[in-house]
């Protein structure tokens, strides 16, 4: 059998792996307690003891980045799950059924889509209170429209396929056709969209935390770390650089990896 060579972007794969690994290890142990303040280490530059240096309270930045990264992964991951799950159902129904149901649902979809995700999140937070759960809920809902639209166009593409006609001739029910026959074919596109959604979620969360409406102290968050370090940029730039760098590398790794996986 001649197998087509799969070109995975090695750099992206390794980068993603390393970052996720670091974060996972960070769940069990960090070099220092991320919330422990140590006046003596205030603003210390990166050194052997503190690879990323310390912030204004003497907290080890490396440990905080690991914990912050965990939050970011969590928010990104859950957002994508919510967006994908409901987006998929919405897309499947509108794509396959079409007609007036399609029209109405897609217009509602458009309305939600026209809200910038951060604005939507702001509304949620102000109504329901600022906690990580609400941030996830808000961003998740904000991501449903783009998933729904993409899933819908995939279903439209497949609903006239010959193998679907064949399934109809076999008297397969509509729901089974949607979720057992067609769904596996749209998974590659879904995964690619999910990867992009993940990246956007990471950025959105960072942005929200930076603005102060995201994850609340003492929970660490890469975005908030950057926000808090603004004042100290000239004195201790590492306070802002490392969290920012971590976000960039995380997104870079996942983007490269998912893009290479999606290539035919």
């Amino acid at each position: 059998m001649h197998k087509k060579k799969l070109k995975i972007n090695k750099f992206g794969a390794i980068l993603s792996f390393v970052i996720v690994l670091m974060i996972i290890i960070g769940i069990f142990a960090t070099p220092y307690d991320p919330n422990k303040m140590d006046a003596a280490s205030k603003f210390s530059a990166p050194s052997i003891n503190h690879i990323f240096g310390c912030d204004q309270f003497g907290r080890d930045i490396f440990s905080r980045v690991l914990v912050g990264g965990r939050t970011t992964l969590l928010v990104g991951g859950c957002t994508v799950l919510i967006g994908a799950f409901f987006g998929m159902i919405l897309g499947a129904i509108t794509g396959f059924i079409g007609g007036i149901v399609d029209e109405i649902l897609m217009r509602i979809n458009d309305v939600v889509a026209s809200f910038p995700s951060i604005l939507l999140a702001l509304v949620f937070i102000s109504l329901l209170g600022p906690n990580t759960g609400n941030v996830i809920l808000a961003l998740g809902i904000a991501f449903i429209p783009s998933f729904a639209r993409i899933v819908r166009s995939e279903f439209i593409k497949y609903k006239d396929a010959d193998f679907v006609k064949s399934a109809k001739l076999m008297k397969v029910g509509k729901i089974r056709i949607l979720f057992v026959h067609i769904m596996p074919n749209i998974m590659p596109t879904m995964l690619a969209t999910a990867a992009i959604g993940f990246n956007n979620a990471v950025l959105a969360e960072a942005g929200m935390s930076y603005l102060g409406i995201g994850v609340m102290p003492p929970d660490a968050s890469l975005g908030r770390m950057m926000s808090e370090s603004q004042a100290y940029l000239s004195v201790a730039p590492w306070c802002a650089i490392f969290p920012g760098l971590f976000i960039v590398l995380m997104i870079l790794g996942f983007s490269l990896l998912s893009e290479s996986l999606n290539r035919k």
């Binding site: 010959d162 193998f163 006609k165 064949s166 074919n185």
Partner: peptide, 14 residues
């Protein structure tokens, strides 16, 4: 019924 495009007629993921 059997169709013209054999690739299209069989579910590529099964």
């Amino acid at each position: 019924m059997i169709f013209q495009n054999t690739l299209d007629a069989l579910n590529p993921k099964k």
